[in-house]
Structures are given as structure tokens and as C-alpha cells.
Design a protein around this nucleic acid. Sequence first.
RNA 1: GGUCCCUUCGUCUAGUGGUUAGGACGCCAGGUUUUCAUCCUGGAAACAGGAGUUCGAUUCUCCUAGGGACUGCCA
Length: 511
Amino acid sequence: MSNQSSVRVRFAPSPTGPLHMGGVRTALFNYLFARQNNGTFVLRIEDTDQTRYVNGAEDYIIESLKWCGLEFDEGPVQGGSYGPYRQSERKARYRRFADQLLEKGHAYYAFDTAEELDQARKVAEEEGRTFSYDEHTRLAMKNSLALPREEVDQMIANGQPYVIRFKMPDEAEVVEDEDMIRGKVSFRTSELDDKVLFKADGMPTYHLANVVDDHLMEITHVIRGEEWLPSMPLHVLLYRAFGWDKPVFAHLPLILKPQGKGKLSKRDGDKLGFPVFPLKWRDPESGEVAAGYREDGYFPEAFINMLALLGWNPGTEQELFSKDELVNAFSFDRVNKAGARFDPEKARWFNHQYLIQKTDEELAGLFGPVLVEKGVVPPPLDSLASIVGLVKERVSFVSELWEQSAFFFAIPEEYDAKVAKKRWKGDVPAFMSQLAVFFAEEEISWKAELLKEKVSGMIKEKEMNFGAVMNSLRLALVGGSFGPDLFTIVEMLGRDEVVDRIHKAVDQLGG
RNA sequence: GGUCCCUUCGUCUAGUGGUUAGGACGCCAGGUUUUCAUCCUGGAAACAGGAGUUCGAUUCUCCUAGGGACUGCCA
């Protein structure tokens, strides 16, 4: 039932730490492309470097993608017919592909030690050059191209460590390939070096493992970050050396720092106060903690939407997209080539958009735990929902709901001094006391409209200043000069509470 | 340094030879709200530079400048 033309893409992170938001975007674009084409989205863990393995990183990656709603069809957890999906578990199969290349003369053994190579690089650097293991230098190194056959056999027989290197073709040629985003990209093979394919520890390098696995897993489109662009010609040459069809490549633009130079890094987040990781991450070694979008109160839909628009655009003026809408609208010809600077302000705006779209009940459900954390017993869901409904337009995060609505749950601890100085003076305090009496004794029904009418009448009658009275009443009830409609607050707080608060304000601010 | 990629408002971007160069975030002003925020209206704000090609270049070509990635027995 698997037909040749069906799209298969993979997201292939390395479990060396938390997944960067750029990685999430790469996963997202893979996902969108797969879904749009009724294809298959594969997760493959690229853990060929045992020294860089970080505990918990794989789980982190999986949980992050899950939080973002990017379900994959095959992967280390659910398996699939192309497994295993961890390269460390595929170790046994790489060697024979390296041997194939050796036999065909596309690769050779190299015995240079890491120290010798470092030395060569150092010497070159001192002479103002860059050392490159290539056609110009390879014959001066310790490898099966330079050494006599018997010596090579002897060293191998003696168990001397070696790596297997790709032999760049002798004839200079231009490797061209069509990138889905960039169009034609070309490299001269004469500028390329002989990359290590197989390491002395018996593991393949990224280059070999990636090409072999993409072939074995029948990956049709390789969608990855721009940092891989320079190795595209090597990969193309590898496919050719094996005699395999190559997948179609797409190299995504990078996500850059909000300000300054370079690509977005963890440091930027710390410095500017925004997360660069989807989830909070605690480094198992150092114990260092990095913030995550989830814990900072972002909705996954908002995070994904924001990421999708970083480097891609629909060509219309629509900015808010559900995941399904993204699947439909996405296209590689609308992905930009240039790197995109990340804008934390816009991320915030996206979250605000999603927050105000949520129902009051939904938000109340999310807000409840915040209240508990603040030591407040949450009111019934429906009354909490009406409070949330009054203030949700003014915030971007659920946690900010507290700052805007705390006065609904507790009498103000202190009063904004600037407001007090400006409004709470002259005959206002005395009038406030009269207001308390009025509220305590008034028998009309406790409704915002009616109360407002009555109070307005009183102000007029006593020839008070509207602004001074209204703002002082607000000061007494909420503690500052902010919040929703004043009489709506009066109504919701209820008679006793309003009277109490006015008394307390008069006590504290002076009558 | 070398190789490769890239270049429209501060930022994300639309634009594919003839547009008052459009939108969004942010910013500013006015209006609404007897508060603040939201909201509404308006505003400031860009084709990196230079040569070509063309009747005409933001758009095509080249050069320069700037930015970025890579340059590991890391991915």
C-alpha cells in the first residue's frame, strides 16, 4: 500500500539538550508539509555522538512536540516499519554502507589522530591558511591513499584506530541542486574537503548516518535549517556514490536575535527576558534552568502561529491561523530566504489574540490555579468567568489576569499615592463618607446602572467634581486608577464589601 | 581567511518592469471609556550603494558594501 510518490519527511534532532525554538519551527514546517500532502512525519533521534548525549533531552523533545500539537507518525516511541528510530540503535547497519563506499573507491581509511589533525590546523593557522583535508593535503597524511597497501593492512590488523573519509572526486565539477526554497544552489567540488563518514568509535558521523537513514526510511523531502546548506553538496555526492535517488532539499532560514548580530541563542532569552525553548529545561549537569514558552504562559496555538509566520507568509493579510489553516495555506514558495529576527513583542501580541478568543469559562478554568497560588479560594466557575470576561482584553497571559482582577478577591492593601494626592482632597473625603452611608442604606436594587444614576445625582446635587469623586471611589475599591467600568465593579463587589472598602479608604487616606 | 546563502519601514513581511510601495507588531496623536487597558481613526517610518539592460527599475544582470551560516572523529 505504500506508494512510491507518497511524501515522507523527518525531523531529526540530536538529543544534546533542550530543543531550540528554531528546531520547533523546522519540525513545524516538516509537519505542515507532511499533513498537506497526506504524507508521513517521522521523528528520528540523531544520537551518533555518544559524548554529547544529554539525559532527558529525548523526552524533552518528544514532550515539546506533543505540547505544540505536532504529532508524528513514526518515531522511537510508537515505532513504525522503518525503525529503529534512534541512530544509536541502528549502529550495526552503518558499517556496511561505509564498506560499500570503500570498495567503490569513494572512501578511504585515515589513521591521523585527533592530535595530529589539531597540530596540522594549528600550523596552517600560523601560516595564515586554513587546513583542509582534501586533494591537496591528503597524500601527505596518514591514510590508505598515501600509505602502501601492506602498511595499511598491518595497521588495521594491529587494531590501530582509524576513521573512514569520503574521497572528494578528483575531477573538479560543479554540484548543483534545486532547493525548494532557494532554487538553484551550486558548489565546486574542488573547494570541498574529505569529510569523515565513519568515526573511530564505530559510529557514523551525521553525514553518513543521515544519508543512509534518509534512504532507508524512504524520505522524500529533507527539510532542515540553513546551517546544513554547506553540507548539501557532500550529501548529494554521497547519494550519487551509493547510486541512490536523492530526496528534495529545503533549507529554512535561521531565526535571528531580536537585536544585535547572529542567530538566536539561549543567552538572548536570558538577557531580554523571553524564552527560547518551548518548555522549561533544567540542565541535569549544571542545574541551570532555562525558561519555556509553556511555563511562561504561552498557548501552544499562539506559539505555533507565531513561529509559522517567522519566515513564511500566506500572501494574504491573514495573520491568525489555526493548525489546520496552516496545513492548507503552507507552501515552500512563500518561505523567505533571509533569516528572520525574532520579535518577542509580536509573540506577546499573538498570545493576546488567542487569549481573547478563548471563552470566559475556559479562561476561568485556567485562572483558578493561579488564584490558589495567590492564596485565594477561587469563586464558583461562573462568577470567576464573569470577572475574567471583564478584564481579559487587557492582558496577554493568564497570569496577568491576577494583576487586573486582584481587587475582586481582596480589599486593597494600599492606595496609589499619586492618584490619592490628585483626587482624594478638599471635600471629597467627606463626600466619600456620605457615599458609604448611601450605599449602606439605599434600597434600590443593587444594579450598576441604577447605582450610577443615583450617585451621579448626588454628585450633581452637592456640586462635587465628577472626576474627583469617581476616581476616589475607584481608588477606594481597587486601590488605583485602573480596571473595568466602576459601577460594574460596585455591583459585583456587593453592598457590604463596597461600604467596607470606602470606610477603610477613609480611615487610611484621611477623612 | 575560504566556501556558500542572504539584503523592502526599528521588527515580521506584501510586492515578480509602470503602485500615492500595501499590511502587521511596536511607537506617536486624536476619539471613545468621567480611570487604565481594549477599541476606533489618523500619523511618522523602508526599496543598502553604484553601474548596466530597458521608454521605464523595488522588481532583471554585474560589482561594492553589509549581514548570516559553515569551515570538528558535533549535529
